[in-house]
Amino acid sequence: MEDQRQRVAGVDAAGGGLGGAGAVLRTATCAAATYRAAAAGDVASVAFVIVSYGALLLMLRFLRAYEVFPPEAAVRREGLRRRVWALCTLLTAMFAWKVAGVMTWPVALGVWAAAAVTSAAGFVLMFRQRRP
């Protein structure tokens, strides 16, 4: 347990300032987008921003936990990888839905195809490829 705490401290110390600045900027941007959408009365956009921000935070938290857990905790790491892939797929689908909504149907079809290929490739790379 102590070794795990030292790893967390080492990871936090390595990029603490830049990571903190990114978190502040990400939060401020999402708050501004939520405020603008709420002021315009666009409930769907408010929900989109809140859900995508929450999914991004969860994904980053799971990625950090994956980095910290030792390779011996293979079952725990596998569960974290599954969660990260599911959240990446959710974010990909959400952004494809938003982008495809403002495109013509042939371009929207291309956006959805790209999202599907990206998610499928992520699945293959994360779960089906052999590791050394």
Score class of each variant (00 low, 15 high):
residue 9 A to I: 09
residue 54 G to C: 03
residue 10 G to R: 13
residue 122 G to D: 08
residue 84 V to C: 02
residue 15 G to W: 07
residue 65 A to H: 09
residue 63 L to W: 09
residue 68 V to S: 00
residue 130 R to N: 04
residue 5 R to E: 10
residue 125 L to D: 14
residue 11 V to W: 08
residue 105 W to P: 12
residue 114 A to M: 11
residue 18 L to R: 12
residue 76 R to E: 15
residue 59 M to N: 15
residue 64 R to M: 10
residue 111 V to L: 03
residue 35 Y to F: 11
residue 45 S to I: 00
residue 115 A to D: 01
residue 101 G to M: 02
residue 45 S to E: 12
residue 14 A to I: 04
residue 47 A to P: 00
residue 88 C to P: 00
residue 96 A to Q: 00
residue 47 A to W: 09
residue 96 A to M: 01
residue 97 W to C: 10
residue 62 F to K: 12
residue 29 T to E: 07
residue 5 R to L: 12
residue 52 S to P: 00
residue 4 Q to F: 06
residue 61 R to Q: 07
residue 35 Y to I: 11
residue 60 L to F: 10
residue 127 F to E: 08
residue 129 Q to G: 00
residue 49 V to W: 01
residue 104 T to I: 04
residue 28 A to C: 10
residue 72 E to N: 02
residue 34 T to A: 13
residue 119 S to L: 01
residue 25 L to K: 03
residue 18 L to V: 15
residue 121 A to Y: 11
residue 78 E to N: 10
residue 78 E to A: 15
residue 33 A to E: 10
residue 123 F to C: 09
residue 112 W to G: 03
residue 108 A to V: 04
residue 118 T to F: 13
residue 110 G to N: 01
residue 117 V to Y: 12
residue 75 V to D: 10
residue 63 L to F: 10
residue 120 A to S: 06
residue 8 V to I: 13
residue 46 V to Y: 04
residue 14 A to E: 13
residue 117 V to G: 01
residue 36 R to H: 11
residue 15 G to H: 10
residue 127 F to L: 08
residue 43 V to D: 12
residue 75 V to N: 03
residue 77 R to F: 02
residue 49 V to C: 04
residue 126 M to W: 05
residue 98 K to M: 05
residue 55 A to S: 08
residue 38 A to M: 04
residue 103 M to S: 07
residue 70 P to L: 07
residue 122 G to N: 11
residue 38 A to Q: 07
residue 119 S to G: 14
residue 90 L to E: 02
residue 41 G to D: 02
residue 125 L to V: 14
residue 8 V to A: 13
residue 99 V to C: 05
residue 75 V to P: 00
residue 9 A to C: 06
residue 101 G to I: 02
residue 50 I to M: 09
residue 4 Q to L: 15
residue 32 A to L: 11
residue 59 M to R: 15
residue 58 L to C: 14
residue 51 V to H: 01
residue 89 T to Y: 04
residue 72 E to C: 02
residue 35 Y to D: 10
residue 105 W to E: 06
residue 98 K to T: 03
residue 59 M to K: 15
residue 68 V to E: 06
residue 35 Y to E: 12
residue 131 R to I: 07
residue 101 G to N: 04
residue 116 A to D: 00
residue 117 V to D: 05
residue 115 A to C: 04
residue 69 F to E: 14
residue 20 G to I: 07
residue 123 F to K: 07
residue 130 R to V: 06
residue 13 A to R: 11
residue 76 R to T: 15
residue 43 V to Y: 05
residue 70 P to Q: 06
residue 24 V to T: 14
residue 3 D to F: 07
residue 131 R to Q: 12
residue 6 Q to E: 15
residue 12 D to R: 14
